[in-house]
Amino acid sequence: MNAPTLTGYNFAYLDEQTKRMIRRAILKAIAIPGYQVPFASREMPMPYGWGTGGVQVTASVIGPQDVLKVIDQGSDDTTNAVSIRAFFARTAGVATTTATADATIIQTRHRIPEAPLTDGQILVYQVPIPEPLRFLEPRETETRTMHALEEYGLMHVKLYEDIARHGHIATTYAYPVRVAGRYLMDPSPTPKFDNPKMHMSPALQLFGAGREKRIYAVPPYTRVVSLDFEDHPFEVNRFDKPCALCGAHGVYLDEVVLDDRGGRMFVCSDTDHCGTRQEQGHRGDLSTPREGSAA
């Protein structure tokens, strides 16, 4: 990516005063893991709901020497990931990468990379609705009181209803967690498959909700526990087959519809992970030479 840095704008778009304001919110969020810190979210040049919260967090923590990776649905090449990566390449002139291990900051929508994160990395989540209790209680004044008084019984009522109705907890993504034994937190709409990766992660996890004007955080090596019942323990989504391209087991798969006669294939949602494995010689059932695939 060699686009020239955008003239007329500050490094990483936001002015320094705004960045300071956001950094203060981030520091507070780190000090109170899982607590939603209100911040004066700015209007960004991309729409609300398209990652403005994550972009503001990234813009406030990024430095010229950082290496940025942006993924959406696990992929570096989806439209919104491309757009956000291009935004930082233009406004901050930073190096970008698709390799999880090479990145110092990873901004993500809906996935946590398969490759384990390491000390010093920052994972920035884009969050649409930060309040895990929102669909049980629409009033902000009431949900803030519930957090303050640690009244989380209602969340279990929801899980109870799932089991009574379906025999399972029917929440498959945005699965609520308790952070450091205190705050109830929405992990953003990542599949619950990724929840265990949040627990005791060496990386700093920052969450930005632009439209809802909230920032929250999970500091490195913090307990993150998915809610459940003793007799209906939390379980991750499982797939019957390995990835059709790289043969990986125990990874999150996307379903690709091949034809209108029920033909399906399952491939890694994390494109970097899949590509790396294929380069190492791993092969799945349907892998073919990838040269010349349509764009």
């Binding site: 009244e151 019984g153 209602l154 009522v157 109870y160 209803e161 019942f229 007799d231 209906h232």
Partner: peptide, 15 residues
Amino acid sequence: ANVGERLMAVGQRHY
């Protein structure tokens, strides 16, 4: 769930 809510509110976690 109506009957169980208070139990869950005080920390019962066995469905």
